[in-house]
């Protein structure tokens, strides 16, 4: 099932161990090549060649400041005005890191959920529907249907179906984060990027969120940044370990956790640093 693509190097460079996913069932849908990210003159990402398999969950782990969030935010160009991103981001054969790409259209295909739930100061219904209306979906029946489906997929429908016109700001943290997921999938993306989506949630909400993600991967390709090792272990098929702006190890999650090839990875996943 796997073609070894080991680019381990030794010497002055840190040892790296990268095995890109090779699985006919889950072809590569997104990949980055020679990606570098600069904040001004400071380089935040040096090496981050990764390929992401369709309908799988890929976890990006690593200590704080390792560049995993910066990397994730580059994937749908959320760093556009903040940092300089060079290199290629190939999405279904197109380099979306080009200046002539319609970045707004691209972000509808590559959606994002953030660390802190950020529902808009609108009703629950409008949080989901207003972006659709802006894009020309005005049919009330159709909107109702999308709102319902999205909320069901995000496992929030049963809790809010009678309060759709209430303000989204009244939701609890876990519910608000689900609403943000519903909002992201309502525009029918292909890929869902999640930046530590559970870090502001309590354990019960976190576990519900994980169940939701496992359900969602049937339809979406999911890339999730997490600082929670158990979470990566529970839900992801692939895991990339970031350290100091570099992907040091990338492999199936089971390999990363049971048989890491790089010493730092091993230290990190066993909790010895980070």
């Amino acid at each position: 099932m796997f073609v070894s693509n080991d680019v381990s190097t030794t010497g002055t460079m840190q040892k790296r161990h990268i095995v890109q996913p090779r699985d006919a069932q889950h072809p590569i849908v997104l990949s980055t090549e020679e990606l570098h990210v600069f904040y001004g003159k400071k380089e935040a990402i040096y090496e981050g060649d990764l390929q992401f398999a369709r309908n799988q969950i890929t976890a990006l782990i690593g200590p704080s400041g390792s560049g995993k969030s910066t990397y994730l935010r580059s994937l749908n160009r959320m760093n556009d005005r903040i940092a300089t991103v060079t290199g290629r981001i190939m999405y279904r054969g197109v380099d979306i890191n080009q200046s002539d790409i319609d970045v707004y259209e691209m972000r509808r295909r590559v959606g994002m959920v953030f660390q802190r739930p950020n529902p808009f100061a609108k009703s629950i219904y409008d949080n989901i529907a207003f972006a659709l209306r802006l894009r020309g979906t005005t049919d009330q029946h159709e909107l109702d249907e999308i709102v319902e489906t999205s909320l069901k997929q995000a496992a929030l429908w049963n809790q809010v179906k009678d309060d759709l016109n209430k303000s989204a700001l009244a939701l609890s943290g876990g519910q608000a984060q689900r609403l943000c997921i519903a909002r992201a999938i309502a525009v029918k993306p292909d890929i869902l990027l999640l930046d530590e989506p559970a870090s502001a949630l309590d354990p019960v909400s976190t576990s519900q969120l994980e169940d939701t993600l496992l359900e969602l991967k049937k339809q979406y390709t999911i890339i999730i940044v997490t600082h929670n090792m158990q979470q990566a272990g529970r839900i992801s098929e692939y895991t990339a370990f970031f350290n100091q702006g570099r992907v040091l190890e990338y492999d199936t999650t089971s390999h990363i956790f049971t048989n890491p090839q790089v010493q730092i990875t091993s230290d990190y996943v066993s909790g010895n640093f980070g």
């Binding site: 749908n76 972000r107 994002m112 959920v113 953030f114 808009f120 943000c180």
Partner: peptide, 24 residues
Amino acid sequence: SQREGGLALGLSRWETITRVILPA
């Protein structure tokens, strides 16, 4: 985060400002 939320949905900056930020 409200601005990022708007942009992540594929809204332009102007749409984010007029539809999300100003109403709030």
